[in-house]
Design a protein around this nucleic acid. Sequence first.
RNA 1: GACCCUUUCGUCUAACGGUUAGGACACGACCCUUUCACGGUUGUAAUACGGGUUCGAUUCCCGUAGGGGUCGCCA
Length: 446
Amino acid sequence: MSASPVRVRFAPSPTGYLHVGGARTALFNWLYARAHGGTFVLRIEDTDAARNTAAAQAAITDGLNWLGLDWDEGPEKGGPHAPYYQSQRGDIYDAYFQKLADAGHTYTEDNGAVRFRSPREIIILPDKIGGDIKIDRTEEPDMTIRRPDGSYIFHFVNVVDDIEMQITHVIRGEDHIYNTGKHIELFRALGAEPPVYAHIPLILNGDGSKMSKRDQGAAVGYYQENAFLPAAVVNYLCLLGWSPKDDREILAIDEILPLFRWENMGHSNAKFDMEKCRWFNAQYLAQLDAPSFDHLAIAWLLRQEPLLPGTDDPRLVGALPLIQPKIKSITELAEHLPMLFDSAAPIADEARTKLAAQPDLALRLNTLLTHLEAVTDWTAVNLQTAVANAASALAIKPGTLLFPLRVLTTGQAHGVDLLPALEWLGRKAALARLNARVVSLTNAAN
RNA sequence: GACCCUUUCGUCUAACGGUUAGGACACGACCCUUUCACGGUUGUAAUACGGGUUCGAUUCCCGUAGGGGUCGCCA
């Protein structure tokens, strides 16, 4: 069997932002190409000059690069079928248009628009995911393929380029199913064999509506800005409409490739769940080595305005390992840095309330303070001993003292592992915070 | 409205026609723990409905209902 080499393409139009649905379409094309030793083509469908922007185009290439979806032919890369911008392929379209016209497949409207004369048949689309799909074209009006100003319509250029670029498989959203009926007519009229089609189900909001620009996470840029790990996003996106058919979820791309087959594709739309996406991110974040985490964190911190506490503090790199295991996304640094770097941060309401529930608080705090002040070699291990001794003196469990200690040193009820954090903070700073807050608390109580 | 696709826990999904219908996110409980977390165990929770076919249906067929898509001189 000498099947022709696989050639797939992602063909976005640069009119807005890179939608997660589009990104997943690109991802599935990329996976199919990589799984079959094929070629992944990126083609920019910018025939509608009025709606195209350079920013939108950058969002596409930036987003794909960020996700790690490298293309073999396309913008910035070139290839045997260049150019890969439809706006630069007018001569090719003219030639194909002439061919269609010469064969009598077209006619011109009074205003100059040109339509394709539909054969008006029932088309059975053999879809790799949906099976045989019936598309009744017998009652449909003829599609316009060229505007009065001479510019060409999507259907026409899309098919011409798929022929020219020798695309073998078209993997796109199922919102294109009816377009495919039109496209098959054009392929046939141009004497070309239509490619293999696979229409993938769509990604929707949690409420079932279409994800649009204002929905959180609809744009790939959202994940870039919020410093998600691209591998985590890719992993999550794969599981929307594809399954390894076993219980695995955390899968490296290399594990996915051999399992990326049509029979593993889902047939129904999937609702996007940001919580689960964040969970994937947390899983990947936890596996990151320290230098990579630091790099990611610092890059994100430097983009914040105003800068978060600690951003330009030399102790930052020491604090990051404390934070890494506690967060699901880099953006949560915003919650952790103030309590570590802002010694005057007010005590959070939740922490204050829980603290007030402690019996004999003043006695406990003073006992704790006394034992801590006796620690000269300020390490987590020694602090642990000191807390244990204080607890023993009070005849209570050590754990009882940890929460008050947390609140008095950080001002928060939640946060990083406490004793290592106090070691990082240092004896002088930690005791200063403790004393100051004990005083304020005692005064308030009286 | 017409046509097409689709329907398993709230969500993502698994289950050669025979399973106590499994896993994951989220949520609750318990355990671990020297705090906060992680982790472990566990609980609540699903085959849309009605007909067939079959010894037996989540699985195959038909219908109904719900959801989505499409109906451009946008892509």
